[in-house]
Nucleic acid binder design. Structure first.
Lengths: 344, 344
DNA sequence: TAGAGCCTGGACAACGTTGTCAGATGCGAG
DNA sequence: CTCGCATCTGACAACGTTGTCCAGGCTCTA
């Protein structure tokens, strides 16, 4: 009561500090710091006393203060669309592993494909002074990052390039993958081929559409507008889009699905139909080989994307990198049956 | 050269500080702080000048310093097994959404089911002074968390209870779910039922095994040791385990799979066999309804687990919670065909 | 016009840590 | 026994922010 109990109402719920440890061990503040950080120049006896005090008090170094002093947070930020998407899980994990190898923690954020939320997240991460950022961009204007990059925040974009700024980017060959996938369908006799994809403002979606057009063009097949369904999100809308292009006066005999979510829904739609429909999907999906028929896909290696991006990030931090670069990873066509069905 | 360029080699790559902004705007340090934090007591004209200086310099508040001063980091930590696992993706996302609603960021870490790595991660998060922790434990002794919890770090365990300490836990009814799933197989005429699960030191695995035994016991069926395969991890070992119990002198006619990864592998094994084998799996898997037959599962709601845990975490932080509690969410049996096959 | 009261702005300390540097201690050699 | 050196230890400032508190200038009233 008498002593105003300032200590008791302390912010961290009474976290002991090095000062407390020093007092208890009967040594100086800096000596505690030395012990905690394993610096040389402490006699075994002193070290033991300090260690005892640390254990007794349950002391844990306050990294916020450490960061403030040292300038490096040993943490990196990852902004992606949705952690629950099976494509991003492995990517995130790969980034985390690389970060771990460099002694850094990973702060995660989902943009939900909303540019504003992306920016909000990125800036929040910068305010925490993450050492670096891995961003799967939702927006197409990243000039807001210029001061950050200039201030030394390492930055790598993944899956889609940055907008309006020059930065490292690691992505899959969406154009080539889609072109090959569609060409595969054409090679199996299809001419009326549908495309269902995400909003074209998303780079990958646009590239895959371009690949579709290129394959059709290469084969001299004029594309009818009714075959293309762009910017459809959500299972219901994908379902409607698929059903529309499979019905009507000139139904398609094959579908190219622009991403894993579209593929899953299209599989459902096709399964319900009597007439077989060929299908090639972008992104691999689990159990694709166990379906009847197996789903042929253009696979990209999400983990490899993440690893490559994180590697590059830490090389930026090492200072061993100079000019931004664009790294494109190849895709792989995996034939399992659905893409080899003849036109019905 | 003459002026030792201290500023130039500054740690944050020359990040402007409030002091710099103040100098440029010709105001005091605290005034900048007021503007940045939207505090009252600044004339519109002054505010404009400060804002201009902020924009011109690309100033971003240093949250490390802020944290040091204020004591709250507005970030929470999530330690789980593997972000790439389809079960944890949605869980993590759900936690993130709740955190976001409370203005907090999420720091993620994968323990890879290694108790030591779990502890390492948790303590690293505590050193960063996260406000709270959501932990999916890998180990079974969490006494190392006692000083942290005492110091005010809100803590909630998910999916599995904490070991050796009293803490909030949110989990699915593994025992009841497994018992119901196995009873479902028994109801469809099976008596020789196999169980393939994770290491029994993992709480959920042990509970599901217990559920299996209980269901068999309730039906008066003595369990043969050859029917149970515990502690199998990795597709190859699961495959071998499944093949073993499906062959030999007294093969099982049905399998209960202890988690999503086991289920997937067992599906593969069963598909390759001539004789049909019934299957019920714990955890739902994507596309389970499209397989032939559809896979019957005991489903748990990963997102709901995450949401519930995070809600509870923030209620701890509000101070509106007192005693640790155990919250058990029900599971749901989803029949799709594989669990309704008669014994062959 | 003087005094009271309000509003704005700024000086200063503190948060917990680390880097710098100087002081203390102990030991061996002369 | 004293000096010199090496080793160990601690005082102090600084990191960038926020909370406290006071000063100065303004308005409004008497």
């Amino acid at each position: 009561m008498a002593e105003t109990a300032r200590r008791t109402e302390s912010r961290y719920g009474n976290r002991p500090t090095m000062k407390d440890v020093a007092a208890r061990a009967g040594v100086g503040l800096k000596t505690v710091s030395r012990v905690v950080n394993g610096e040389p120049g402490v006699t075994p006896d002193t070290e033991r006393r300090v260690q005892e005090a640390i254990d007794a008090l349950g002391f844990r170094r306050n990294d916020s203060a450490r960061v403030l002093r040292k300038g490096r947070t040993a943490s990196i930020g990852l902004v992606l669309e949705d952690l629950a998407d099976p494509f991003y899980g492995p990517l995130s994990r790969a980034v985390e592993e690389v970060a771990r190898a460099h002694g850094a923690l990973l702060i995660n954020g989902s943009s939900a494909e909303d540019p504003e939320r992306e920016q909000e997240l990125v800036l929040a991460l910068c305010a925490r002074r993450v050492d670096g950022l891995v961003v799967i961009p939702a927006g197409d204007d990243h000039r807001y990052l210029e001061p950050e990059i200039k201030a030394g925040v390492a930055t790598v974009f993944v899956d889609r390039p940055a907008g309006q700024i020059d930065a490292d980017v690691v992505l899959s060959d969406s154009f080539g993958g889609a072109r090959d996938g569609v060409a595969h369908l054409i090679a199996h006799g299809h001419r009326r081929i549908g495309f269902i994809g995400d909003m074209p403002r998303i780079h990958t979606a646009a590239e895959r559409l371009r690949g579709y057009r290129a394959a059709m063009d290469d084969a001299g097949i004029p594309v009818e507008p009714a075959w293309m369904s762009l910017g459809v999100t959500g299972p219901e809308r994908v379902r409607r889009a698929a059903e529309t292009m499979l019905s009507g006066p000139s139904p398609v005999t094959a579908v190219f699905a622009g991403n894993n979510r579209v593929t899953v829904t299209v599989v459902r739609v096709i399964t319900e139909r009597a007439r077989p429909v060929a299908l090639v999907g972008f992104d691999d999906i689990e159990l694709a080989d166990l379906l009847q028929p197996g789903v042929t896909v253009v696979a990209q290696d999400a983990a490899q994307l993440g690893r490559t991006a994180a590697d590059r990030l830490f090389r930026q931090l090492d200072g061993s990198l100079v000019a931004p670069e664009r790294i494109e990873l190849p895709t792989r066509l995996i034939t399992r049956g659905s893409g080899e069905l003849p036109p019905a």
